[in-house]
Amino acid sequence: MARPSTPKSWEVLIGEQSETSAEVPATVRLLVIAPDGDEFILGRNDLGVYVAVPEPGAVFVRALQDGCSLADATARAGATAGAEVNGGEFLDGLRAAGLLDRQRAGGTSQTAESADGDGRSIRWFEGISPRTARVFFGRPAWALYVGAAVAAAMVLATRPALRPSYSHVWWLPDPLLSLVTYVLLGFVLAALHEVWHWLAGRSAGVPAAFRISRRGAYLVFETDLSQIVTVNRTARYGPFLAGMAFDVTVLAGALAARAAYGSGVVEIPPSLDRLLAAVVLALVIGIVWQWSALFLRSDGYAVLANALRCHNLFRATVLTTKWRIWGLSGEEAAEFGAIGPRDRAVARWFGLVYLLGMIGTLWAILIFALPFLLSTGAWVSANLAAYSLSSVAFWESLAVLVYLVAGVVGPAVIAWRERRLRRAGALL
C-alpha cells in the first residue's frame, strides 16, 4: 500500500511488522537472489536492474523476505560476515541502485517479465516453449554449429576463389538493385542472428528485449538478455555465442553450395551462385566484426567479460581510459569508485585494447567508410536528379539515400538517448 502523503516511489509494509514499516519497503520481496561464484546477484527482473553483493548482503535480503525485522536481518548478515554490518546503510544502497522502486506498470509476474530497462523495446512473441528452444542448443545442435565453423574455415582456407570480396556486393548487372537487395539481405541475416540469441535465451529460461542500438558509429540490432546474470556463468556462453552459431551454419551452407557448383557437382543458376557470394561476404564481415570489435562491446566482448568473471567491465574500461586521458568529473569518479576491484584490474589492460581499437575505428571510418558514404551518396543523389518519379531507379536511389542518412543521424541520436538512460540507471 502506497503512502500518498510522501512523494516516495516505494511501498511500505503494514500490519504486524509495524515497528519496521517505515524502514523496509514491500518491494524487497520482488528481489531475485542468485549465486555467482563467491558472490550473489540481487536483481529485479521486471526492471532489468542487477547488482553483485557478498554473501552477507544475500543473507540480509533473504531474511527480510522471510519476514524478519531490519534489526534481525542485520544481525543475521553480521553473523555471516563475522563482523558488524549496517543493514540500514545497505538497504539505502539497494534503494539508490533502483532495486526497491515500485513494480513497473504492467509488470505482474516477476518470472515472465522482460529484461529491458528502457521501456521502448519490442516485447517479442513468446510462442516457442523453452523445451522446444532447447532442441536448437543441446549437444547435437552445438556439434552441428562447431562442425559448420570448422567446415567453413577449411573451405575458406583451401579455396581462395570462394573467399569474400567487396566486389561480391554487385551480384546483379544493375548496381542499384544489387545494393538495395544486399542491404535487405543483410537486414534479414542480422535479424535472424538476433532471433538465435533470443531462442538461446528462451532455452535457458531468460526472456529477451529487442532494440536498435549502436556500436561505435554503426547501427545494430540488439538483444538484451540481462536476466542471464541470474544463471551460472558456464550456461551464459551458449546464448552469447548463439548469434554466431547461426552465422557459421548459414556460411557453411553457402560455401558448400558454391564449392559444389564450382566443382560442377551441382547445377544452380549463376545468379544464385553470385547471391550466395554476397551472403558469404555479409556473414564473414559479421563474424570478423564480433571478434575484432571486442572494445565496442560485441558478442565476443560478452564472452570475454564472462570468462574474466567481470560484472561491469565496459564502464570500468571507458572510465579508466577517460581518467588516463583527461581525468574524471566528480560524478564519473563516484561511478568509478563504486566499481569492484576485479573489473578495475581487468580494465587497466583492456583499456589499452579499447584505446587502440577506438583509434583504429576512427582511422577506418576516415579511410574506408567516409569515402564510401560520400561516393555512394553522390551517386544516388545524382540519380534523383537524373531519373523521373515514375522510374524504379528513382525510388531505389531515394531508399539508399535515406538509409545512408539514417546511418549517420541514427548513432548520434542513440548515443544521446542511451547516455540519458544510463544516467537514470535504466540501461547499463
Binding site: 560476515a81 554490518v85 545494430v220 538484451d224 569492484g340 540501461l427
Partner: peptide, 18 residues
Amino acid sequence: MKIEIRRVESARLTANFP
C-alpha cells in the same frame, strides 16, 4: 564491515546493420 554493492552491466548482444 560495509556490504559493497556492485552494479552489473546488461547482456547486450548485437548484429550490425548491413
